[in-house]
Amino acid sequence: MTRDRALRSVVLATPLVWAVAFMFVPYLIIFTYSFWLKQYPTFVPAFQFGNYLQLLVDPQYYQVLLRTAKIAILVALSALAIAYPFAYYLVFKVTSARLRLTLYMAVIAPLWVSYLLRAYIWKTILGSEGVINSFLVWIGILDTPTDIFLYNQFSMVVTLTYIFIPFMVMPIYTALEKIPRNLIEASKDLGVGPFGTLFKVIWPLSLPGVFAGMTFAFCLTFGDFVAPFLVGGPDGVMVANVITSQYGAALNWPLGSALAIVMLIIVLGIIELSDRFERSGRINLA
């Protein structure tokens, strides 16, 4: 029996120790650092809110936070606009199960292709010496290449939407699949048109999937590291760029930590919010 008890404690202790050592303690360290004071050439222990104050007062920082939030919202909405009709079509309009599975796999497969590459591709497509520009010059629409496509917020939104479409399709597809078909039949029998059924029956019942997808897209965009560096440019600087420079060249770890904590709080807040929405929006079908 002691062997079984040993098994039990190993099962519990391994992940517990790991979570404490590599997650809880590190988060605690950034939290502590976020109150410390920068003092050339490094930083010293302190307890003051100067770093957080700086994030709120210095336009350089709060504007980055606002811009990041704006881009994250735009990405979540555009991914939703593309993913929802796609998932809807798969679940309700495709009659062949085989075709449905194939199309679903086709939209999920890009997740397996390197994230970095997917961002890089857009750099090569949108750049001033890129595919679109050279095409437009080639067929004579443009005389000289334009730089309006790359290094701005537009290129960020396109690239990140491209990356997060599969993340959006998955939960929405699952939510739509769970809707009992007889509810839709009932709605039809009661004389509700297809649009009425969509807005009054299908959409509300699919909200858990929508919230899950939007939470993913928002949170992952908010902290995205790759796209702002590759396609962002000066107009697309995001929180991740600023944290990186505080930890790198600026050597202001306390400020970088404060920013990371703000990011953490925003992400946790969004998750909590979407959890609440999902719970309050859940309609009991039993």
Binding site: F24, P26, D224, F225, T244, Y247, A260, M263, L264, V267
Partner: peptide, 30 residues
């Protein structure tokens, strides 16, 4: 069943939505 199970679950599932940069700098600090 153990004390702090809810917290443990939250902590361990966090990286699903937590930007990698936070895992990166927090472990760098450690």
């Amino acid at each position: 069943d153990f004390i702090g199970k809810r917290m443990f679950r939250r902590l361990i599932l966090l990286p699903l939505v937590l930007p990698g940069i936070i895992t990166g700098i927090s472990m760098l600090n450690l």
